[in-house]
Design a protein around this nucleic acid. Structure first.
Length: 213
DNA sequence: CAGCGGATATTCT
DNA sequence: GAATATCCGCTGA
């Protein structure tokens, strides 16, 4: 029944490190989302690092606001934001409380509860597309604003948790520029993915919106 | 597979 | 008022 034998969550200290160390170390770990209909588990294959006040691409670059407050809180919690008028994306907060770095979860492979994810991702043509992209990932896992601030390190019956599991070997991790990030923030090679993994999302450069006609 | 336009609402200026 | 850490469906190769 339970696909993952070891259900130990990652300890909070795991996230209380520089975000550029945490981000590649998350690849291959399993995120467990417990929904009312049952669990959905996702193996992380692609993430991006956002380095708080030093990073023009970060939501926290200009300081604390109503939206980004969770980023300044304790590590290991989930920051969910709403974007482009219809999508949610989820992050894991890193570094000590008071700092504001986070890892955006961009893609993964559904390893449990695929039937639940498919119901939420009707446009996916195959299972590799269920969580290929940050908003798709959040949709597949039924993650929205209600989960903003959730502790992903707590054991037991929680809505969301990242298992310790086993990370992929470092020589299987590739990195490159972040996807869709505006301005100077796009130059940092802070996107990390598992090399040759079919669930990794395609790279897209930032596309400024055209003016309405 | 690449390029495009449209949909949509929250946030910050 | 303008921009946005996106996705989908369509077109043409």
């Amino acid at each position: 029944m339970i696909a993952t034998p070891d259900r130990t969550p990652l300890p909070r200290e795991f996230f209380d490190r520089p975000v550029l160390e945490v981000a590649p170390d998350l690849l291959g770990r399993t995120l467990v989302r417990t929904t009312p209909d049952g669990p959905i588990a996702l193996r992380l294959t692609e993430v991006e690092a956002y380095d708080g006040p030093n990073d023009p691409g970060s939501h926290a670059y200009r300081g604390r606001t109503a939206r980004n407050g969770v980023m300044f809180g304790p590590p290991g919690h989930v920051y969910v934001y709403f974007t482009y008028g219809m999508w949610f994306c989820m992050n894991l907060v890193c570094g000590p409380e008071g700092e504001s770095s986070a890892v955006l979860l961009r893609a993964g492979e559904i390893v449990e509860g695929a039937e639940l994810a498919r119901k939420r991702r009707l446009s996916a043509r195959n299972d590799k597309e269920l969580a290929k992209g940050p908003a798709r990932l959040a949709t597949a896992l039924d993650v929205d604003r209600a989960l903003n601030g959730t502790d992903a390190c707590a054991a037991g019956d929680t809505p969301l948790c990242v298992l310790a599991g086993t990370p992929v070997p470092r020589d299987q991790v590739s990195n490159g520029p972040r996807t869709g990030v505006a301005g100077d923030g796009g130059v940092h090679p802070w996107r990390f993915w598992i090399a040759n993994d079919p669930t990794v999302s395609p790279y897209r450069a930032h596309a400024p919106r055209r003016r309405p006609s």
